[in-house]
Nucleic acid binder design. Structure first.
Lengths: 378, 378
DNA sequence: CTGAAAGCGCTTACAG
DNA sequence: CTGAAAGCGCTTACAG
């Protein structure tokens, strides 16, 4: 049996001067000695007067090292700016320092924000973010991911909706012993393996807001049925309406694809009806912008003739005119949370605000802007 | 001296059945044997009755292998679905299979499109795309990238504007023997190391279009002076105006930051002038959308009161109302070109449409939509 | 054209 | 608490 070692979650960034620097100290390329890269565990071992294995123990924070030894080795490591070679570690550990982001969300804004959040955590570490877009309808969808995992042996992967909701995939990852964190709108895994958003609540807020403005003919364009978030948002919306004594009409509930074009097309159908809705809640901002477009094309003014609410609060929401009322999801924060969960699966390493054994979750917030107004009397 | 070997540009995707598949053949996870991953070069050597080294030669397309031997080994490789372990190769070669995308462009749409283009080429290969956002104003900007390169030893990196224009960085990469491809609006490297866009021409087209509509008080919000593209677009715009007998007024030329907010702020200044411009050419779409916003805030209608032209043709251009006239840059195609240049630096491997010794370049195209109109007589 | 040996920079068992 | 040996899966010299 091997000895017990603390999981290596500590980061070995190259020991560079940190913290604020005088203005004029901006380093020029080449200022750092080229020799630095060559320092290996052997050098450190020799210089510290210990074996490679002991250096390895220090690197990996093994408790099995005398405090004195540890200090000595750490000092040498710092002095020489040694960083273990990720490729060598990967080969020996059969696990690389890559963190995969597996996504199939069609909204570019969602993707970019998520990447930013993950990168916030990975930057200045040895971990690298690698991108893995995918398509659940591909015949070799599982195979491609399986190949990626077996070949690259990523440290872990982060899954965003809707691919995060695929139980077959989660099972496959588990079987392959690949760590993962799923981001989803429903509780579908243990707290150490997921970050949750309460889409249901957010949509309910949207409903209550719309209802409070006096609307009654209210439409909903939801996301694809293959997305749990689409269901959560729809049910939350229905729930919110019910509280206000309203009901979501079947004829005014259309399925979109979370894309601009689908939002546009669904809205065209809605506006062509004999008695069109006076308010539309779209399942995400992309589709909501499509609704704006369709409204303009038929001469309807937002919000005078039509009230529109989106979901996500991606940048586009505040760039359209009038600025869109939407439900904010802190996507970047979610990415950050997912990444730190992946790197620090143990409670003690977790940020303080996350309680033991509870799923890290984010509450959406209704952002009221200019696309919603009291229904105009006709 | 080592023997000569063809550079390994061929890809070793796991040998799965390719091509169209019957509808019902969608593989379930786990359908692929778990044993597959364990096949190593030793197994292949043993099964082929040759040495590891010969298998290695076959993998690396060395010409120093008898045709018969090569066929035999290739057959075994195919049969067992062997793919060389990227981590092991990385360790031996001191070069990983990671392709870094180094970017500081503030436009999310630009980033996502670029990523897509690069991924188009990398998918189904052993190469992985890793993200490296950066900030040229960081005091340790070079250091961070240097650390990334020495630690991860990427196969190569792709640089987008403006970081692509940093000569110190390019020199550093060269010294570090790190392959790179730069995407830029000016010719700043040899043909094998860059992909070029003719922003100058695109901006000139925009100018001629605006001039042809009778505008004379024309403003330009250009990108940051630290971006070569900003200069190219500005000079191209000036050039186009000159051809039409017009001149760009200094007082109507403002510097933005390629962001929505900066476009908005610059436009506010323009519209507050005693005699505001009747047309604005923004250096990119993000800023142009800011101009839309500012126009609306002061009650100006697009295009009746103000003509607006953007640059890039990112999705947002067709999502605003009215749809924006803009200069299209095929960003995804550029990403694709950059990636294949990096993986196939030799002419013979290059796509046919790229001639020998010439820089791969893309011509922008003016997309006329609804944000430009003939000047209204007052 | 082919192979046996040594090495890339780490870690895992095993022993003390 | 510490270390010598073997190994992760490849490739580079070198030799034939």
């Amino acid at each position: 049996m091997g000895e017990k070692q603390a999981r290596n979650t500590q980061e070995w960034s190259v020991s560079l001067a940190k913290g604020p620097q005088p203005e004029n100290s901006k380093r020029k390329p080449g200022a750092v000695g080229l020799g630095r890269a060559k320092v290996t565990i052997n050098d450190i071992a020799r210089l510290s007067g210990v074996s490679k294995k002991t250096v390895s123990r220090v690197i990996n924070n093994s408790p099995q090292v005398r405090e004195e030894t540890r200090k000595k080795v750490k000092a040498i490591i710092l002095e020489h700016g040694f960083t273990p070679d990720p490729q060598a570690r990967a080969l020996a550990l059969r696990r690389s320092y890559l963190v995969g982001m597996i996504y199939d969300n069609p909204s570019p804004q969602y993707i970019v924000n998520m990447q930013r959040g993950i990168l916030d955590v990975l930057s200045d570490t040895s971990y690298q973010l690698v991108l893995r877009p995918c398509d659940r309808t591909d015949y070799d969808f599982y195979e491609k991911i399986e190949t990626f995992i077996t070949l690259q042996k990523p440290y872990g992967v982060i899954l965003t909706p809707s691919v995060s909701e695929d139980e077959d995939l989660a099972n496959m990852l588990r079987e392959m012993k690949c760590d993962y964190v799923r981001i989803a709108s429903v509780e579908l895994d243990k707290p150490t393996k997921m970050v949750r958003t309460h889409d249901f609540k957010g949509a309910a807020q949207a409903a209550q807001h719309i209802a409070s403005l006096g609307h009654e003919r209210i439409a909903h364009i939801h996301g694809p049925n293959t997305f749990r978030s689409a269901h959560q948002r729809r049910h939350g919306f229905e729930h919110g309406l019910e509280i206000c004594g309203l009901k979501l009409a079947k004829s005014l509930t259309l399925e979109g694809a979370y894309t601009f074009d689908s939002g546009y097309e669904c809205a065209q159908k809605l506006f062509a009806m004999k008695s069109p809705p006076t308010a539309v809640f779209a399942g995400n901002d992309e589709m909501a912008v499509g609704v704006y477009q369709a409204a303009r094309q038929v001469g309807m003014q937002v919000p005078k003739d039509i009230t529109i609410v989106g979901f996500d609060d991606t940048p586009v929401a505040s760039r359209v005119w009038p600025p869109m009322t939407t439900v904010r999801l802190p996507i970047r924060d979610m990415g950050r949370a997912a990444a730190s969960l992946l790197l620090n699966p143990h409670d003690e390493d977790r940020p303080e605000n996350f309680k033991d054994g509870e799923i890290i979750s984010f509450e959406p917030e209704l952002i009221v802007r200019g696309s919603t107004a009291r229904i105009s009397k006709k």
